[in-house]
Protein backbone atom coordinates (compact mmCIF):
# COMPACT_ATOMS: atom_id res chain seq x y z
CA UNK A 1 0.00 0.00 0.00
CA UNK A 2 2.66 2.47 1.07
CA UNK A 3 4.90 1.64 -1.89
CA UNK A 4 1.96 2.00 -4.25
CA UNK A 5 1.29 5.53 -3.01
CA UNK A 6 4.96 6.48 -3.14
CA UNK A 7 5.27 5.27 -6.71
CA UNK A 8 2.10 7.08 -7.70
CA UNK A 9 3.46 10.29 -6.14
CA UNK A 10 6.77 9.95 -7.97
CA UNK A 11 4.91 9.62 -11.24
CA UNK A 12 2.95 12.70 -10.21
CA UNK A 13 6.17 14.71 -9.83
CA UNK A 14 7.30 13.47 -13.23
CA UNK A 15 3.98 14.48 -14.75
CA UNK A 16 4.36 17.93 -13.23
CA UNK A 17 7.64 18.43 -15.08
CA UNK A 18 5.98 17.12 -18.22
CA UNK A 19 3.21 19.68 -17.81
CA UNK A 20 5.62 22.58 -17.42
CA UNK A 21 7.73 21.41 -20.36
CA UNK A 22 4.64 21.04 -22.59
CA UNK A 23 3.39 24.54 -21.74
CA UNK A 24 6.84 26.02 -22.25
CA UNK A 25 7.31 24.36 -25.64
CA UNK A 26 3.84 25.47 -26.71
CA UNK A 27 4.50 29.12 -25.92
CA UNK A 28 7.96 29.08 -27.45
CA UNK A 29 6.78 27.58 -30.73
CA UNK A 30 4.85 30.79 -31.37
CA UNK A 31 6.71 33.00 -33.87
CA UNK A 32 8.38 36.06 -32.29
CA UNK A 33 9.35 36.40 -28.62
CA UNK A 34 6.86 37.74 -26.07
CA UNK A 35 8.81 40.94 -25.50
CA UNK A 36 8.69 42.03 -29.14
CA UNK A 37 4.93 41.60 -29.11
CA UNK A 38 4.62 43.45 -25.83
CA UNK A 39 6.83 46.29 -27.00
CA UNK A 40 5.17 46.75 -30.35
CA UNK A 41 1.96 47.37 -28.44
CA UNK A 42 3.11 49.62 -25.65
CA UNK A 43 6.52 51.21 -26.26
CA UNK A 44 7.21 51.85 -29.91
CA UNK A 45 9.91 54.40 -29.16
CA UNK A 46 12.42 52.06 -27.45
CA UNK A 47 15.95 51.90 -28.91
CA UNK A 48 17.68 48.63 -29.87
CA UNK A 49 20.07 48.61 -26.84
CA UNK A 50 17.11 49.18 -24.53
CA UNK A 51 15.29 46.24 -26.17
CA UNK A 52 18.34 44.04 -25.71
CA UNK A 53 18.52 45.05 -22.05
CA UNK A 54 14.88 44.01 -21.53
CA UNK A 55 15.52 40.73 -23.36
CA UNK A 56 18.56 40.12 -21.18
CA UNK A 57 16.62 40.89 -18.01
CA UNK A 58 14.00 38.26 -18.93
CA UNK A 59 16.67 35.75 -20.08
CA UNK A 60 15.29 35.78 -23.63
CA UNK A 61 18.83 35.97 -25.08
CA UNK A 62 19.80 32.64 -23.56
CA UNK A 63 19.41 29.09 -24.95
CA UNK A 64 16.01 27.38 -24.86
CA UNK A 65 16.96 24.96 -22.08
CA UNK A 66 18.28 27.77 -19.87
CA UNK A 67 15.08 29.75 -20.43
CA UNK A 68 13.03 26.71 -19.44
CA UNK A 69 15.04 26.19 -16.26
CA UNK A 70 14.69 29.85 -15.24
CA UNK A 71 10.94 29.65 -15.77
CA UNK A 72 10.70 26.26 -14.05
CA UNK A 73 12.55 27.56 -10.99
CA UNK A 74 9.71 30.04 -10.45
CA UNK A 75 6.92 27.74 -11.62
CA UNK A 76 7.80 25.13 -8.97
CA UNK A 77 6.83 27.70 -6.36
CA UNK A 78 3.75 28.57 -8.44
CA UNK A 79 5.22 31.98 -9.17
CA UNK A 80 4.32 32.95 -12.72
CA UNK A 81 5.45 36.58 -12.70
CA UNK A 82 3.21 39.61 -13.11
CA UNK A 83 0.27 40.22 -15.39
CA UNK A 84 0.97 42.35 -18.45
CA UNK A 85 -2.33 44.15 -17.93
CA UNK A 86 -2.22 45.44 -14.35
CA UNK A 87 1.26 44.28 -13.26
CA UNK A 88 -0.14 42.40 -10.29
CA UNK A 89 1.18 38.96 -9.41
CA UNK A 90 -0.49 36.26 -11.53
CA UNK A 91 -0.82 34.00 -8.47
CA UNK A 92 -2.75 36.72 -6.59
CA UNK A 93 -5.07 37.27 -9.53
CA UNK A 94 -5.81 33.54 -9.75
CA UNK A 95 -6.37 33.11 -6.00
CA UNK A 96 -8.72 36.08 -6.01
CA UNK A 97 -11.01 34.56 -8.69
CA UNK A 98 -10.69 30.89 -7.70
CA UNK A 99 -13.34 30.92 -4.90
CA UNK A 100 -16.03 32.12 -7.35
CA UNK A 101 -15.28 29.21 -9.69
CA UNK A 102 -15.14 26.69 -6.85
CA UNK A 103 -18.49 27.89 -5.50
CA UNK A 104 -20.19 27.49 -8.88
CA UNK A 105 -18.63 24.11 -9.66
CA UNK A 106 -19.02 22.58 -6.22
CA UNK A 107 -22.76 23.27 -6.26
CA UNK A 108 -23.11 21.98 -9.83
CA UNK A 109 -21.02 18.87 -9.01
CA UNK A 110 -23.05 17.97 -5.91
CA UNK A 111 -26.34 18.59 -7.70
CA UNK A 112 -25.27 16.48 -10.68
CA UNK A 113 -24.08 13.65 -8.42
CA UNK A 114 -27.19 13.76 -6.23
CA UNK A 115 -29.47 13.39 -9.26
CA UNK A 116 -27.26 11.49 -11.72
CA UNK A 117 -25.97 8.62 -9.58
CA UNK A 118 -29.37 7.41 -8.31
CA UNK A 119 -30.83 7.63 -11.83
CA UNK A 120 -27.90 5.63 -13.22
CA UNK A 121 -28.13 2.91 -10.56
CA UNK A 122 -31.89 2.77 -10.88
CA UNK A 123 -31.80 2.34 -14.66
CA UNK A 124 -29.06 -0.33 -14.44
CA UNK A 125 -31.18 -2.31 -11.99
CA UNK A 126 -33.85 -2.37 -14.71
CA UNK A 127 -31.43 -3.63 -17.33
CA UNK A 128 -33.02 -4.66 -20.62
CA UNK A 129 -36.39 -3.11 -19.96
CA UNK A 130 -37.72 -0.26 -22.11
CA UNK A 131 -37.13 2.21 -19.25
CA UNK A 132 -33.43 1.42 -19.25
CA UNK A 133 -33.09 1.73 -23.02
CA UNK A 134 -34.98 5.02 -23.11
CA UNK A 135 -32.86 6.46 -20.31
CA UNK A 136 -29.66 5.46 -22.13
CA UNK A 137 -30.78 7.45 -25.17
CA UNK A 138 -31.81 10.36 -22.96
CA UNK A 139 -28.35 10.50 -21.35
CA UNK A 140 -26.82 10.63 -24.79
CA UNK A 141 -29.06 13.44 -25.91
CA UNK A 142 -28.31 15.47 -22.78
CA UNK A 143 -24.62 14.85 -23.28
CA UNK A 144 -24.82 16.05 -26.90
CA UNK A 145 -26.41 19.42 -26.07
CA UNK A 146 -23.93 22.27 -26.50
CA UNK A 147 -23.74 24.00 -23.11
CA UNK A 148 -23.55 27.52 -24.55
CA UNK A 149 -26.74 26.87 -26.51
CA UNK A 150 -28.52 25.59 -23.40
CA UNK A 151 -27.31 28.71 -21.59
CA UNK A 152 -28.72 30.94 -24.33
CA UNK A 153 -32.09 29.18 -24.28
CA UNK A 154 -32.26 29.35 -20.47
CA UNK A 155 -31.48 33.07 -20.57
CA UNK A 156 -34.00 33.58 -23.35
CA UNK A 157 -36.74 31.81 -21.41
CA UNK A 158 -36.17 32.58 -17.71
CA UNK A 159 -34.60 36.03 -17.97
CA UNK A 160 -36.03 37.63 -21.10
CA UNK A 161 -39.44 36.01 -21.47
CA UNK A 162 -40.45 35.31 -17.86
CA UNK A 163 -38.12 37.88 -16.28
CA UNK A 164 -37.80 35.85 -13.06
CA UNK A 165 -34.02 35.29 -13.06
CA UNK A 166 -31.16 37.71 -13.76
CA UNK A 167 -29.45 37.51 -17.17
CA UNK A 168 -25.86 37.50 -15.91
CA UNK A 169 -23.43 38.66 -13.24
CA UNK A 170 -22.87 37.41 -9.69
CA UNK A 171 -24.96 40.04 -7.89
CA UNK A 172 -27.41 42.83 -8.77
CA UNK A 173 -26.35 46.47 -9.15
CA UNK A 174 -28.01 47.44 -5.87
CA UNK A 175 -26.35 44.55 -4.00
CA UNK A 176 -24.62 46.68 -1.38
CA UNK A 177 -27.85 48.41 -0.34
CA UNK A 178 -29.55 45.10 0.46
CA UNK A 179 -29.92 43.46 3.89
CA UNK A 180 -27.94 40.28 4.53
CA UNK A 181 -30.86 37.96 3.87
CA UNK A 182 -31.66 39.79 0.64
CA UNK A 183 -27.99 39.61 -0.36
CA UNK A 184 -28.03 35.84 0.04
CA UNK A 185 -31.21 35.51 -1.98
CA UNK A 186 -29.90 37.84 -4.68
CA UNK A 187 -26.70 35.83 -5.05
CA UNK A 188 -28.65 32.55 -5.07
CA UNK A 189 -30.85 33.85 -7.88
CA UNK A 190 -27.75 34.65 -9.91
CA UNK A 191 -26.43 31.13 -9.28
CA UNK A 192 -29.42 29.25 -10.70
CA UNK A 193 -28.83 29.48 -14.46
CA UNK A 194 -25.03 28.95 -14.47
CA UNK A 195 -25.36 26.00 -12.09
CA UNK A 196 -28.05 24.36 -14.24
CA UNK A 197 -25.93 24.88 -17.36
CA UNK A 198 -22.93 23.24 -15.70
CA UNK A 199 -24.89 20.47 -14.02
CA UNK A 200 -27.07 18.93 -16.75
CA UNK A 201 -24.28 17.40 -18.83
CA UNK A 202 -22.39 16.23 -15.74
CA UNK A 203 -25.56 14.63 -14.51
CA UNK A 204 -25.74 12.63 -17.73
CA UNK A 205 -22.10 11.59 -17.30
CA UNK A 206 -22.64 10.53 -13.67
CA UNK A 207 -25.74 8.58 -14.66
CA UNK A 208 -24.03 6.80 -17.55
CA UNK A 209 -20.96 6.04 -15.47
CA UNK A 210 -22.81 4.68 -12.45
CA UNK A 211 -25.10 2.72 -14.73
CA UNK A 212 -22.22 0.96 -16.48
CA UNK A 213 -20.47 0.43 -13.13
CA UNK A 214 -23.50 -1.39 -11.71
CA UNK A 215 -24.06 -3.33 -14.95
CA UNK A 216 -20.45 -4.47 -14.75
CA UNK A 217 -20.86 -5.60 -11.13
CA UNK A 218 -24.08 -7.51 -11.88
CA UNK A 219 -22.17 -9.61 -14.43
CA UNK A 220 -19.66 -10.75 -11.79
CA UNK A 221 -19.60 -14.32 -10.50
CA UNK A 222 -20.22 -13.37 -6.88
CA UNK A 223 -23.58 -11.86 -7.85
CA UNK A 224 -24.52 -15.08 -9.64
CA UNK A 225 -23.41 -16.97 -6.53
CA UNK A 226 -25.55 -14.79 -4.28
CA UNK A 227 -28.55 -15.32 -6.55
CA UNK A 228 -27.90 -19.05 -6.77
CA UNK A 229 -27.80 -19.52 -3.03
CA UNK A 230 -31.23 -17.93 -2.86
CA UNK A 231 -30.65 -14.38 -1.67
CA UNK A 232 -33.68 -12.22 -2.43
CA UNK A 233 -33.18 -10.14 -5.63
CA UNK A 234 -33.61 -6.83 -3.77
CA UNK A 235 -31.04 -7.87 -1.19
CA UNK A 236 -28.57 -8.91 -3.90
CA UNK A 237 -28.86 -5.43 -5.36
CA UNK A 238 -28.57 -3.51 -2.11
CA UNK A 239 -26.09 -5.62 -0.18
CA UNK A 240 -23.88 -7.11 -2.89
CA UNK A 241 -24.07 -4.96 -5.98
CA UNK A 242 -24.62 -1.29 -5.08
CA UNK A 243 -21.72 -0.99 -2.68
CA UNK A 244 -19.26 -2.38 -5.18
CA UNK A 245 -20.68 -0.26 -7.97
CA UNK A 246 -19.96 2.91 -6.00
CA UNK A 247 -16.19 2.30 -5.92
CA UNK A 248 -15.52 3.20 -9.59
CA UNK A 249 -17.30 6.50 -8.98
CA UNK A 250 -14.20 7.63 -7.09
CA UNK A 251 -12.33 7.83 -10.38
CA UNK A 252 -14.94 10.32 -11.59
CA UNK A 253 -13.51 12.76 -9.05
CA UNK A 254 -10.24 12.78 -10.96
CA UNK A 255 -11.86 12.62 -14.39
CA UNK A 256 -14.41 15.41 -14.04
CA UNK A 257 -12.11 18.15 -12.70
CA UNK A 258 -10.57 19.04 -16.11
CA UNK A 259 -14.02 18.73 -17.63
CA UNK A 260 -15.41 21.16 -15.04
CA UNK A 261 -12.66 23.69 -15.74
CA UNK A 262 -13.35 23.51 -19.50
CA UNK A 263 -17.05 24.01 -18.83
CA UNK A 264 -16.32 26.97 -16.56
CA UNK A 265 -14.69 28.90 -19.39
CA UNK A 266 -17.89 28.83 -21.46
CA UNK A 267 -20.36 29.26 -18.61
CA UNK A 268 -18.41 32.05 -16.90
CA UNK A 269 -18.03 33.88 -20.20
CA UNK A 270 -21.76 33.72 -20.99
CA UNK A 271 -23.01 34.55 -17.50
CA UNK A 272 -20.18 37.02 -16.78
CA UNK A 273 -19.27 35.06 -13.66
CA UNK A 274 -16.05 36.49 -12.27
CA UNK A 275 -14.05 33.26 -11.86
CA UNK A 276 -10.87 31.74 -13.29
CA UNK A 277 -12.61 30.58 -16.49
CA UNK A 278 -13.46 34.16 -17.38
CA UNK A 279 -10.03 35.32 -16.25
CA UNK A 280 -8.45 32.76 -18.59
CA UNK A 281 -10.59 33.80 -21.53
CA UNK A 282 -10.02 37.56 -21.09
CA UNK A 283 -6.28 36.91 -20.64
CA UNK A 284 -6.24 34.96 -23.90
CA UNK A 285 -8.00 37.79 -25.73
CA UNK A 286 -5.68 40.46 -24.32
CA UNK A 287 -2.61 38.25 -24.84
CA UNK A 288 -1.66 38.42 -21.18
CA UNK A 289 0.83 35.54 -21.53
CA UNK A 290 1.98 35.30 -17.88
CA UNK A 291 -1.63 34.89 -16.73
CA UNK A 292 -2.44 32.39 -19.49
CA UNK A 293 0.68 30.35 -18.66
CA UNK A 294 0.03 30.52 -14.94
CA UNK A 295 -3.58 29.41 -15.27
CA UNK A 296 -2.71 26.62 -17.70
CA UNK A 297 -0.11 25.20 -15.33
CA UNK A 298 -2.28 25.81 -12.25
CA UNK A 299 -5.34 24.02 -13.67
CA UNK A 300 -3.20 21.13 -14.91
CA UNK A 301 -1.70 20.80 -11.43
CA UNK A 302 -5.18 20.85 -9.85
CA UNK A 303 -6.16 18.04 -12.24
CA UNK A 304 -2.99 16.15 -11.41
CA UNK A 305 -3.56 16.38 -7.66
CA UNK A 306 -7.22 15.37 -7.87
CA UNK A 307 -6.22 12.41 -10.05
CA UNK A 308 -3.61 11.33 -7.49
CA UNK A 309 -6.14 11.74 -4.71
CA UNK A 310 -8.68 9.62 -6.60
CA UNK A 311 -6.11 6.85 -7.18
CA UNK A 312 -5.11 6.76 -3.52
CA UNK A 313 -8.75 6.73 -2.36
CA UNK A 314 -9.45 3.97 -4.85
CA UNK A 315 -6.64 1.88 -3.44
CA UNK A 316 -8.14 2.33 0.04
CA UNK A 317 -11.62 1.38 -1.14
CA UNK A 318 -10.70 -1.55 -3.37
CA UNK A 319 -8.18 -4.02 -1.89
CA UNK A 320 -7.66 -5.66 -5.29
CA UNK A 321 -5.77 -2.58 -6.51
CA UNK A 322 -3.43 -2.77 -3.51
CA UNK A 323 -2.63 -6.42 -4.09
CA UNK A 324 -2.07 -5.91 -7.76
CA UNK A 325 0.26 -2.99 -7.08
CA UNK A 326 2.17 -4.94 -4.42
CA UNK A 327 2.90 -7.82 -6.80
Amino acid sequence: MGSYIVRRLLYGVLTFFGITLAVFILVHSVPGDPISFYISQHMTHLSQPALDAIRHEHHLDEPFIAQYLYWLRDAVFLNFGNSILDHRRVTDRILEKLPHTIELNAIAFLLAAAIGVPIGLWSAARSGRPVERASAVLFFLLYSLPSFWVALLLMEFFSVKLGILPLFGMTSDDYFELSNAQKLLDHARHLVLPVVTLAYAQMAIFARFSKSALTEVIRQDYITTARAKGVAPQRVLWRHAFRNALIPLITLLGLTIPYLISGSIIVEDIFQWDGIGRLYFTSILSRDYPTVLGLTVATAVITLISGLLADVLYAFADPRIRFEAAR
Partner: peptide
Protein backbone atom coordinates in the same frame (compact mmCIF):
# COMPACT_ATOMS: atom_id res chain seq x y z
CA UNK B 1 -0.80 11.35 -18.54
CA UNK B 2 0.58 14.82 -19.16
CA UNK B 3 -1.91 15.59 -21.96
CA UNK B 4 -4.84 14.34 -19.87
CA UNK B 5 -3.93 16.75 -17.08
CA UNK B 6 -4.77 19.76 -19.23
CA UNK B 7 -8.39 20.79 -19.31
CA UNK B 8 -9.23 20.11 -22.96
CA UNK B 9 -10.84 23.44 -23.88
CA UNK B 10 -8.11 25.45 -22.13
CA UNK B 11 -5.40 23.88 -24.23
CA UNK B 12 -7.39 24.22 -27.46
CA UNK B 13 -8.12 27.89 -26.73
CA UNK B 14 -4.45 28.53 -25.93
CA UNK B 15 -3.22 26.93 -29.17
Amino acid sequence: EVVLCFPFLLLVLAI
